[in-house]
Design a protein around this nucleic acid. Structure first.
Length: 363
DNA sequence: GATTCGTGGGG
DNA sequence: TCCCCAAGAAT
């Protein structure tokens, strides 16, 4: 333990804090589907889904996912397309692909048993420091820190820590603190208790300090500065991008869809042909036509623009002008380019932005 | 260490 | 409307 940690924990009564926190968690913990048992696989799925994602959003996805892929084997053997479809709308799609890659590693290298050491778990695809600690503590009862945004917010208030929680180094400081104060008897409830407290009581704005089970341990409350914490640097605002997309029909009413590349934004999801373009309406149509010809060798008659869609990501904003198009040339199926019927299109995973496009198209 | 990776909800 | 956020990891 370095000096900073030692000073931070001076006058902090660890045993009493553990007891107050765990007692509260046992009484107040929410009845969530991934808390029905300690199956490491299900804990793993839930922790990946919960990354940067609200509990209420995750619940239906988790239930459906477990129904479709109830075991390590079933997920390892599934088509990636099915997995992405089950993830559709949840965002951060590399989580789904990394999860499946990780599960396949477990199947092949660990005989289908999720390993129980930090060294092994943290090497699995998509499993970082937080998820390693979460799986270890919740599924296996190992006293390993699981420091997420909740934990940093709660502890920054309780211990009055003013470091920027957006920095990598700050998370490591918190991990060191947790190693000192985590309950060795019940690390699972300790870690989950901190997160539950952050979700229900010690929330970002207007924390419910009067209801807090560990109020008497909280330095920020004692000083009346709980609203100033945690310190978090502001994110820069997303960049705006002009796009043009087209829903192309053939003579039989099938529509043309394209599979995105395996890396980067929305990797391996399907979409309507589109490209970055200029905002001038008159040149958009010609650019779009040229793009389809040069990129896919397709002759398409671009017709009217029927809607425009705005979609906001964390780091960019798509402003999409959406056209109708008629396929003129003969179509030869390619790996990443398909003509699909209205019925079959439901089988393909689409990002929300292109779900919006199709919905407008059907209206 | 900073940036890239989604989405929907809430103040 | 706008901005922040929500159980992070990979690059």
């Amino acid at each position: 333990m370095n000096n900073t940690t030692k000073e931070t924990l001076e006058h902090f009564s660890i045993d009493e804090f553990q007891d107050d926190l765990i007692t509260w968690f046992e009484k107040e913990k929410r009845d969530l589907p991934w808390r029905k048992n300690k199956d490491p696989y299900k804990v793993w799925i839930s922790e990946i889904m919960l990354q940067q994602t609200r509990v209420d959003t995750v619940i239906p996805y988790f239930n459906n996912f477990i129904e479709q892929f109830p075991t390590i084997d079933s997920l390892a053997e599934a088509d990636e397309e099915k997995v992405l479809k089950a993830w559709e709308g949840l965002g951060y799609y590399s989580r789904a692909r990394n999860l499946q890659a990780g599960v396949r590693e477990v199947k092949e290298s660990y005989n289908g048993i999720v390993p129980n050491t930090a060294d092994e778990i943290s090497k699995l695809k998509g499993v970082g420091p937080y998820t390693t600690g979460a799986i270890l503590s919740i599924a296996y009862g190992v006293p390993e820190p699981a420091v997420d945004g909740n934990v940093m917010r709660v502890l920054s208030r309780i211990l009055s820590i003013w470091d920027d929680i957006g920095k990598t180094k700050t998370r490591q400081q918190f991990e060191e603190i947790i190693r000192e104060i985590i309950s060795k008897e019940n690390p699972s409830y300790f870690n989950q208790g901190l997160m539950e407290l952050g979700a229900l009581i010690c929330i970002p704005s207007n924390p419910a300090c009067l209801l807090c089970p560990v109020q008497k341990h909280c330095k920020a409350f004692a000083e009346g500065v709980q609203r100033e914490l945690p310190v978090k640097s502001k994110k820069k605002q997303p960049k705006s991008v002009a796009m043009a997309a087209v829903v192309i029909e053939d003579s039989e009413g099938n529509v043309l869809i394209h599979k995105r590349p395996g890396k980067g934004l929305l990797a391996n999801l399907w979409e309507f042909p589109n490209h970055e373009t200029v905002t001038e309406y008159d040149v958009q149509k010609k650019h779009l036509q040229d793009y389809l010809q040069e990129t896919y060798g397709l002759k398409v008659e671009i017709k009217e623009q029927f809607t425009s869609i705005q979609h906001v990501f964390s780091h960019l904003i798509w402003n999409i002008a959406v056209y109708k198009g008629k396929l003129v040339s003969e179509f030869e199926g390619q790996e990443n380019l398909k003509l699909v019927s209205e019925k079959d299109i439901t089988e393909y995973p689409f990002p929300v932005s292109h779900q919006k496009i199709y919905k407008e198209y059907k209206n």
